[in-house]
Computed example of a mutant assay.
Amino acid sequence: MRVLIAPDKFAGTLTAVQAAEAIATGWRRQSPHDDLDLAPMADGGPGFVDVLHAALGGELSAVTVSGPHGASVPAVVLRVAGTAYVESAQAVGPHLVDGDAETASSRGVGELVLAAVEGGARTVVVGLGGSGTNDGGAGLLAALGATSDGTLDRGAAGLASVSEVDLAGARERLAGVTLVAASDVDNPLTGLFGATKTYGPQKGVGEDRIAEVDGWLEGFAAATDRRTSLEKGAGAAGGIGYALLVLGATREPGIGFVTDAVSLAERARRADLVVTGEGAFDFSSRAGKVPYGVAGVASEALRPCIALAGQVLVGSREMRALGIESAYSVVELVGEERAFAAPAEALADLAQRVARTWSR
């Protein structure tokens, strides 16, 4: 039996590569003669560069960039021919925010893009997701040479004094470079469904601060490109999507980008069963998450798709609406304590049990 194993990361415990290996380990215990094809996945968030490196090869270059509050943080640029891939979470992930969320800057992402361009890339793909910033991408623009009558690299709070922005310097630095924003987030920059209202609270923006912070981003949009701020994806990664769009980037779905890069459709057609997974499988998985994307590919290939997850938080009806035949929970099998203490072993145990049902 041929089994395609294509999970996302299990946030906080396992990378996508580690999750795929853990599932394969458990599956082999039960069905050692099955042919397993491992295809770790990502949607543009954490793990984006690692997954593409595993699939495409290329050269990884270590760089040092500014974290959300100015401290130096390590990151990498993946170069494959004339294309460079970078990941915003490496520079501005929530784990790097060590101060007020309202002053967290996206400058480091701009420095990543600049490092890619200075390294000779003619196309730069920026994976968006897992951001701890909410500054509309102002810090990114500042790193690339944009100027203003206020402060662009002090987070959303710095935008309170901004009324004019000159993007000429940034555009000049990127002349001849194609930018791609890899994200599945459809939110605009501001408003009821914007970056601040939707994602601000999980980044540390207080509920009582949302209106004012969103107002700062409104003013920033008015000073740069109000129309672009309303486009789908402008609110991705706290507005880094907006900054990239303002600089002429095209937007491609992160999961679709990775799916194409790893030739997932072709591999699914060769499989008898597709296995995906993530840390928490819930109905939000439909919003561009890996399991929904993998299930769609499996459906087109007329192959069944199942999910292994840390927790399963949907019923059978919702599960099938997401294209998943069955979903299985690590926490239900081994308990929450062991699921977090030994995540790879626990996931392998779950995979072994699931193989009893699904392997021939």
Rank of each mutant, 00 (worst) to 15 (best):
G233N: 03
V290C: 06
S285W: 12
E278N: 05
A182D: 01
A342K: 13
A265Q: 13
D149V: 12
D260C: 01
T133W: 03
Q18S: 12
G155K: 03
P253M: 10
L302E: 14
A243M: 05
L112D: 01
R28D: 00
A237R: 01
G239C: 04
L114T: 10
E212Y: 10
E21T: 07
T103I: 09
P46C: 08
L347Q: 08
A55C: 03
Q352G: 15
R173N: 07
A138E: 02
V124E: 05
H95G: 08
G158R: 01
D8T: 04
D225I: 03
V77L: 09
G293A: 09
I255D: 02
Q352D: 13
K232A: 15
V125N: 10
R267E: 10
S61G: 10
S61K: 12
G200Y: 09
P32L: 12
V177Y: 01
V294C: 06
T15I: 02
G70H: 06
T15N: 04
F48C: 02
V180A: 01
V65M: 06
V97I: 08
V185W: 03
G288T: 07
D135C: 05
E332K: 09
A11D: 06
C305G: 03
V17H: 10
K232R: 15
A81Q: 14
G235C: 11
I5Q: 02
F220L: 14
R267G: 01
G119C: 09
I23G: 02
G137F: 11
T15P: 04
G277I: 05
V354Y: 14
T228G: 10
V92P: 04
A11R: 15
V275T: 03
L273T: 09
P7V: 11
A341F: 04
L179R: 03
K289F: 01
E218S: 09
Y328N: 08
T147P: 00
G235T: 06
S229I: 03
L245M: 11
D184E: 01
Q90P: 01
E212K: 13
A346Q: 07
A16M: 05
G219D: 02
L245R: 11
F257Q: 09
A355S: 07
D272A: 14
A307L: 12
G70A: 07
I324K: 00
G139N: 10
G108R: 11
G315T: 03
E207S: 11
H33Q: 14
A351N: 13
P7C: 07
L302P: 00
